[in-house]
Design a protein around this nucleic acid. Structure first.
Length: 645
RNA sequence: GCUGGCGUAGCUCAAUGGCAGAGCAGCGGUUUUGUAAACCGCCGGUUGGGGGUUCGAUUCCUCUCGCCAGCUCCA
């Protein structure tokens, strides 16, 4: 063991080496003898493990400062923030019990056992107290305690939940953190003092179950966030406002795209003319491209005999999400939750040769799933939706080339809709699964090989595959950096066996094909919701329900305006004339609110010159030009938008 | 499904136990308009629905439907 006088060698992340006395705190070792501690440094990685700055060094080590700039730094900062909030809650409401309080993406929360929900007024009081705790700059000190002593300690303080947590921990000692009078069970690390947290704000409160189980008592959760500077916090709050502004439920109503109505039922969408037109454009594009890609398009019914769903296994594995069956004559019928059995039955309608494969059946198939009321959310989670579904039937050796094609196709389609950043995941075999281990290994390898051949970076989601086969999930990132799950490519070993699918091989014998399920947009409803938020309702010109609005200044130009509108329509543009008895400013305001890409203002001057004055969405003055030039301009925008990838 | 909040005119929101209101939209008129809101008038309600308390309920209680946030779930 090194003694107090011994020197140890530390290596900093920039490569410099330094001798410090054994027993030196990691933070001091970082700043060097007599050096000023850097306030931006929140913690330190000792041999790669994040620790408190006051951690005592006893042997040679590599050290790396942890700042707010890194993901670990943010976690530590927010973890300390949630402790500050918890301290504040305990001080304002001494009867609360602490449970858990982790950092999360963009913030933190803490769950408290309390006899009633927190009100906004409570949050204001708690936040004020938290700011006082920050100002007091209490040092945050780590201490260790034997397990049994810690259980006793928390029980004496009335913290039953904390005692229960320790009872479920295997270790013989636990670590506690103290700041002022507040002591919490915590693995750490933490920032050295409460004053390190600069800008903190509590955001909301809501119920949450103890250990996430709905049979357990409901706790009161408070969400908050913290940043190093008020400016960063303000920017984050502005982003939250922006998210609210773009909410597809709000924009869907304002732009008269869709509605959901009590009389119809939750999770069921009405597509109004403008929304329906955008959907039509999306679907036309989809069909056109699928035919180009060698898919055959099919249609299938909305209900089928329950027996079909017994064969497919949905009755066993998916009943919870199915509407109850309906009795018709002597049999039961089921509203379809999936399209796959139908495509399988089309496959089965003939004998298939190895020469026929791969067979690609695509359908914009509308399915109905019973989702619990609490999970429904605008267009993003509904009970009736249309999947851009396809099923590929292929030989084992065709998995990789088929998946590669699907990947190329997916990225092409997503880019066309304005998405350029993706997160890709490969999910591997879960505990409960059908199919042999070799099959899984082979299919998973084929998925990875396809991704590698396309140079796509991906992460492995271990054990997250569906029971019937491994899958690739693609999340798209929208303009605000939010990730949305849309595309999925799933290998299926199960259905070919259940439906006894076969093809005749070169050897004249029957073989079982592999099935690949894939969706590019996932659900049209969901994808549309994401598109609305991505574009904040200002759709690119090729998707805009009205591409150009002709706005006459006075009644004298009505004839001219109608004439121009007809010319635009003849050029296959979606144009409307606003002939209402209103001033130009009013008409422009309305067109802007509707997010119309082009406004063609026509007054006496334009009529005289047989021209239009073009205003682009957002107040862009594109000047006066002949009608034909305006048509060329808008048409070029339409083509460009569809090819902008 | 669970916990909490909410539900008033087409939309956004007022009215706390005492005559249900405003702005916008719509309709009629005046105005003939130049790049984000002209002016006047009119119309508009079973206050989500049922039941209860009360002389009297948008308001209080209860059941129910729906929405929102979170939890849980998400083949």
């Amino acid at each position: 063991m090194p003694t107090e006088t011994q020197l140890i060698q530390i290596i900093l992340s920039d490569g410099t080496k330094r001798q410090v006395p054994a027993g030196c705190a990691a933070g001091e070792a970082l700043s060097g003898a007599g050096g000023q501690p850097d306030r931006a440094v929140l913690a330190v990685k000792v041999n790669g493990v994040a620790m408190d700055l006051e951690t005592v060094l006893t042997e040679d080590a590599t050290l790396e400062p942890v700042t707010f700039a890194s993901p670990e730094g943010k976690e530590i900062y927010r973890h300390s923030s949630t402790h500050i909030m918890a301290q504040a809650v305990k001080e304002v409401f001494p009867s609360v019990q602490l449970t858990i309080g982790p950092p999360i993406e963009d913030g933190f929360y803490y769950d408290f056992a309390f006899e009633r929900p927190f009100t906004p007024e409570d949050l204001a009081k708690i936040e004020a107290r938290a700011h006082e705790i920050i100002k007091a700059n209490y040092p945050i000190k780590r201490m260790e305690m034997p397990r049994l002593e810690a259980i006793k300690f928390f029980k004496e303080r009335g913290e039953q939940y904390k005692a229960e947590i320790i009872e479920s921990l295997p270790s013989q000692t636990v670590s506690l953190y103290r700041q002022g009078e507040f002591i919490d069970l915590c693995r750490g690390p933490h920032v050295p003092a409460t004053g390190r947290v600069q800008a903190l704000k509590l955001l909301s409160s809501a119920g949450a179950y103890w250990r996430g189980d709905e049979r357990n008592p409901m706790l009161q959760r408070i969400y908050g966030t913290s940043f190093q500077t008020q400016a960063e916090l303000d920017a984050h709050l502005a982003k939250l406002e922006e998210i609210k502004r773009r909410d597809h439920r709000k924009l869907g109503k304002e732009l008269d795209l869709i509605s959901m109505q009590d009389e119809i039922g939750p999770g069921l969408i009405l597509w109004h003319p403008k929304g329906a037109l955008i959907r039509l454009l999306i679907e036309n594009f989809w069909r056109e491209q699928h035919l180009k890609q060698g898919y055959e398009l099919v249609y299938s019914p909305h209900v089928a005999r329950l027996d079909l769903w017994r064969t497919s296994g949905h009755v066993d594995y998916y009943r919870e999400n199915m509407f109850v069956p309906m009795k018709v004559e002597a049999s039961e019928y089921q509203l379809k939750p999936m399209n796959c059995p139908f495509h399988i039955m089309i496959y089965k309608s003939h004998l298939r040769s190895y020469r026929d494969l791969p067979i690609r059946y695509g359908e914009l198939g509308t399915v109905y799933r019973y989702e619990r009321t609490g999970v429904l959310h605008g267009l993003l989670r509904v009970r009736g939706f249309t999947q851009d579904d396809a099923h590929l039937f292929c030989r084992p050796d065709q998995i990789e080339p088929e998946v590669s094609r699907v990947l190329d196709f997916t990225f092409f389609v997503l880019r066309t809709f304005g998405f350029s950043e993706f997160e890709v995941y490969v999910s591997t075999k879960p505990e409960k699964a059908v199919g042999s281990s070799e099959n899984w290994a082979q299919a998973t390898a084929a998925l990875e090989a396809a991704l590698k051949s396309r140079g796509v970076a991906y992460q492995i989601d271990p054990g997250e595959g569906v029971f019937y086969g491994p899958k690739i999930d693609i999340k798209i990132k929208d303009v605000l950096g939010r990730a949305w799950q849309c595309s999925t490519v799933q290998i299926d070993f199960n259905n070919p066996a259940r439906f006894e699918l076969a093809y005749t091989g070169e050897d004249g014998k029957a073989h079982q094909p592999i099935m690949i399920h894939r969706a590019l947009m996932g659900s049209i409803e969901r994808f549309f919701g994401i598109l609305i938020e991505h574009y904040a309702g200002a759709f690119p010109t090729w998707l805009a329900p009205v591409q150009a609005k002709v706005l006459p200044i006075s009644e004298n130009q009505h004839g001219y305006a109608v004439e121009i509108t007809e010319q635009l329509k003849a050029a296959e543009l979606r144009a409307e004339a606003d002939l209402r008895n209103e001033k130009a400013g009013y008409k422009i305001r309305e067109a802007e609110k509707a997010k119309t890409p082009y406004m063609l203002v026509v007054g006496g001057r334009e009529q005289q010159a047989q021209a239009v004055s073009v205003r682009g969405r957002g107040g862009v003055d594109l000047g006066s030009m002949p009608v034909s030039a305006a048509i060329d301009l808008i048409r070029a925008d339409v083509t460009q938008a569809r090819q902008s990838h």
